[in-house]
Design a protein around this nucleic acid. Structure first.
Lengths: 212, 212
DNA sequence: AAAATTGCTGACGCCGGCGTCATCAACTAA
DNA sequence: TTAGTTGATGACGCCGGCGTCAGCAATTTT
């Protein structure tokens, strides 16, 4: 619409905007194809730029991938922080809210794409894994630990599994994520049913004596 | 040792053994590198064969990969079947035995490698995913369902989460698998601690009222 | 308006990987 | 021993992808 006319300028110089546009294009390509199959040519095309231009802003495929991953982690961290800092209401309600958010995240394609890449390409990019761990996992674990302590202090949780391994609280959600990621096309689990079962398991267990 | 002497035959004709040897070499290469980075040249080298020979027995990279995956699934199916058909003792003991086996499998590198490939390359090989689902997942789910029914009949389990979503029983183990697979190098969880927490969560939940 | 700056590009070289084919040589049968 | 069969190979062609560089042209400065 802007430069399509007869013989307008063949290209525009937009030094400021290029990096963001390239990263965005890279995000789409990497998430759709995975690292190995992703092609710099396609990324350049998506970004409306020549392939050589990529090298003006990034040192190569690897560096671009790092930038893309960093970009993708941003929203995750924000989401994580947001989901945690609302300590009001009973522990059960708190957990339910958190899990609902968690399952929502999972449903979103973006995050599962990042997950998939981390799993697939983790061996080749250990620094990436480390960053993800520091940014997301460690914070999440800390938040879960705090949640458990609060629950115990309020007399709503008991010491035991949750204190020993707070991650247990979100473990079923991770199962759901993985299952959906791999078998989503042929065997989709209902989110709401799963969330309810998850909550039931967490707070009541499945042993018969819980009902006494 | 056999054909290394001065001018022994440059190669031997072993039509019967080649396929298995090639599949074995392919298994190592694919599991170490992932599909995309795996190289037929390296596979041929591992198998002690020229690259062209691969095409005598397999139609190409894709076909070889299918054969490798099928080969890798065999032991898993056996393991699965073995772990299930021992319905003796209390449900808790049964679950504990099953889970111990499960965590053992996870620790084994083979299976997590297959998992990693399924996740990474699932999109490009939907038929593979379908086969894995039919062979492993469906059977596992059936076994879990039977386990739950048996537990309820014996009065050891209550209806609820476990009946609605039997997979909940193994969900934490899958979390452990994923965590270990991705972050195993920088943040290893203790298997025994995790298994205990897992059992505690399953049978007692984390709600305070379970203790009343 | 002309000179200077620099964002941007097209084209080149290189490499690794896949698939194929004519040819060779190990085995087999006569 | 000799002719025939076929498992196995080395080398070739092709393709796609990465990284680079001299040169062009959009923009800025004088």
């Amino acid at each position: 619409m802007k430069t399509e006319a007869g013989q307008g300028p063949a290209y525009q110089r937009r030094k400021a905007d290029r990096p963001a546009e390239i990263v965005q294009a890279g995000l789409e390509e990497f998430f759709a194809q995975g690292y190995a199959k992703a092609s710099l040519a396609r990324i350049a095309q998506r970004a409306g730029v020549s392939r050589a231009t990529l090298y003006l802003y990034f040192d190569g495929k690897d560096a671009l991938f790092e930038a893309v991953a960093a970009e993708a982690m941003g929203p995750l961290v924000a989401e994580m922080a947001e989901a945690v800092d609302a300590p009001s209401g009973s522990t059960e309600e708190l957990v339910r809210r958190m899990l609902r958010r968690f399952y929502g995240m999972i449903t979103g394609t973006k995050n599962s794409a990042l997950m998939r890449i981390l799993i697939a390409e983790g061996k080749s990019h250990p620094d990436l894994v480390a960053r993800y761990h520091a940014l997301i996992i460690r914070r999440g674990e800390a938040a879960l630990g705090a949640l458990v302590q609060r629950g115990i202090a309020r007399g709503e949780l008991r010491a035991g599994a949750a204190t020993a391994v707070p991650q247990m609280i979100v473990a079923p959600a991770v199962f759901y994520l993985l299952h959906t990621m791999i078998f989503g096309d042929i065997d989709r689990l209902d989110v709401d049913d799963f969330l309810e079962a998850h909550m039931d398991m967490l707070f009541n267990g499945m042993g018969a004596r819980s009902e006494i």
